[in-house]
Amino acid sequence: MDVTLAKDDERRVWALAATVCDPEVPVLTIEDLGVLRSVHVADRDGAPAVTVEITPTYSGCPAIDAMHDDIVTTLTDAGYDDVTVRTVLAPAWTTDWMSEAGKAKLEAFGIAPPAPRSAVHGGDGRVGLGLGIRCPHCGSLHTREVSHFGSTSCKALYVCQKCGEPFDHFKAH
């Protein structure tokens, strides 16, 4: 296959795969999340053979199977019959891969987005101060963590002490 054509194909496959949403946070696409890592189109006997790589947010994340199936369905519907989706562990996913657009969508959906990981974990020898988590409902920073562990692996449970509403916070990871 012509190299340029393959690149065009890869761009098209990426755009298609990027429409698949996280089943547990349906406002986010797998591209927003940074779960979609790479797309490769090879030539197999004149037909395109597609390989899509995704990375789990957490080792035991059950949503990864649903994302896997949705990618295959989306690409098959678009005419790609030879699709392989690989779940890759390395390099390990981090919330720093989440797009700014994704973070904005999360907040609008009622989930407080993750802070940059570097601000939480330091990493360069400096000790970072945990920033207040903003309530996605009223915008107050007067919030409290109820539990480190929330409705899915990637979230913690918070409550706003101003408006009284509980909310999920996507953990920086």
Binding site: P56, Y58, S59, G60, C61, S147, H148, F149, S151, S153
Partner: peptide
């Protein structure tokens, strides 16, 4: 309830490690 969720989440992480 929060501990149901927490211990379940921790178990799920460990199950992910075990599967790999």
């Amino acid at each position: 309830l929060e501990e149901d969720v927490a211990l379940g989440n921790i178990g799920l992480d460990l199950l992910g490690h075990a599967r790999s």
